[in-house]
């Protein structure tokens, strides 16, 4: 565990806490894509199929539980909690799941380390995580009034990915034979998807104006 990885995980955790804060205290999920949240829940379910039979550390185990629990509870809130559900921008959140899920599944079946169910699901989760933010980015672009918490949520998610890239660079130079092409390429694609958002986020922050993405 290096400092980049830890900072990345903590940033990821913070993004989820920011979102839960918005949902739980303000009882609003305005500007948040349920599609993206459901895709993240699917990412964690398919990635952590090994949670009970492959033990790497107590840290990993607890973080897996937290990611699974929080992502499922966010989906539950957005679907089942009356007040939260009312604030959901359903008509704007139109991205189709199948455009994301099917290509990722096919790719995982073709490009993987081992053709076993768990390994293919794990690889699928990497590909899916890379593009799961797309419905959220589309929704952001359609939202005229992006509130601070939503902006911070997406910013923290992007920062988490950038820190993971640094973690891989660090591990490449410090751990002999550390090469993970599938993880790296999926991670790089995922980080690049945030580039545009980052640009406007930092611009709005520097100029102290409200965040708005150009159509």
């Amino acid at each position: 565990m290096n400092v980049f990885r830890l900072a990345g995980d903590m940033t990821h955790l913070s993004s989820i806490l920011v979102l839960l804060l918005k949902i739980h205290t303000i009882k609003s999920c305005a500007g948040i894509s349920l599609k993206t949240q459901e895709l993240y829940a699917l990412v964690f379910i398919t990635r952590y199929l090994d949670i009970f039979d492959r033990f790497t550390s107590i840290y990993n185990f607890l973080m897996k539980l937290i990611f699974l629990g929080s992502s499922l509870s966010i989906v539950w809130y957005m679907r089942r909690h009356k007040a939260v559900h009312r604030s959901y921008d359903k008509d704007q959140d139109t991205f189709r799941y199948q455009f994301i899920v099917l290509p990722c599944l096919l790719l995982a079946l073709v490009i993987n380390h081992k053709l076993t169910f768990k390994e293919v699901m794990w690889t699928f989760s990497l590909y899916l995580e890379a593009v799961a933010i797309l419905p959220q980015l589309v929704l952001l672009q359609r939202t005229r009034n992006i509130d601070n918490l939503t902006g911070q949520y997406v910013f923290l998610l992007g920062a988490y990915r950038a820190l993971y890239l640094l973690n891989w660079v660090y591990r490449y130079f410090t751990e002999p034979g550390f090469v993970r092409w599938i993880t790296w390429i999926a991670g790089l694609v995922q980080t690049l998807l945030y580039a545009d958002f980052f640009y406007y986020y930092i611009l709005s922050w520097k100029n102290n104006v409200k965040l708005e993405l150009p159509a």
Partner: peptide, 10 residues
Amino acid sequence: SPEEKRHDEL
């Protein structure tokens, strides 16, 4: 094993 190592991140 390399497979175990592959799964050491979140």
